[in-house]
Amino acid sequence: MIWDWSFTLEILPVLAQAAVVSVEATLISFVLAATLGLVLAVVRIAVPRTGWTISVLVELIRSTPLLIQIFFIYFVFPKFGLVLDAFTAGVLAIGIHYAAYCSEVYRAGFDNIHRGQWEASIALNLSAWTTFRDIIIPQAIPPIVPALGNYLVALFKETPLLSAIAVMELMQTAKIIGSDTFRYTEPITLVGLFFLAMSLVSAALIRALERLLNRRTVR
């Protein structure tokens, strides 16, 4: 039999539990990515002479595979006395990797702010901090929410990499089920379907959000 339904029902709760780990890893690393990315983009504008360094850093992070970065943080950090458990190391690596991508998204958002907004802020003597908080960020963020949303989905789809350092997320769980039972069809297909469903739903949500934002800006 190619597909065994009773086996499917048996492993479903186990996979559901693992899915929670995947989603947790996604959310934590995305918060890290979104925050760190914003910090990078803001620092780049606030302290222009850091621009080159940040560009190079972003390029370095984006030019090397996430999997190697995960290994690097998991295996190399302990050599410097910083021992992280697999989940933390993995989440940190994914967060930093996607921070590099997010910072470019924020940067595009900031670049789209008309120069007059900065000039008006200077003319009103606003501090740099107030200018970012009250004037620039509220205008720059809404248009880039869909782009950030796409990175959230992309990030989610990279969480199976955590299986390489044995984090018990979906992929790792499916592999273990497979090697224990010699049935790979159901667990791996179910994992695929789960990602597919989440991706399709997220894509629809992002499209709806985009429409909402377009309506708002037309106001």
Partner: peptide, 17 residues
């Protein structure tokens, strides 16, 4: 919609079945 690693594993582990 699914991730590259899932696709890789599917072709590697499931297709033989």
């Amino acid at each position: 919609g699914t991730s590259a690693l899932v696709q890789l594993f599917w072709l590697f582990f499931v297709l033989p079945q």
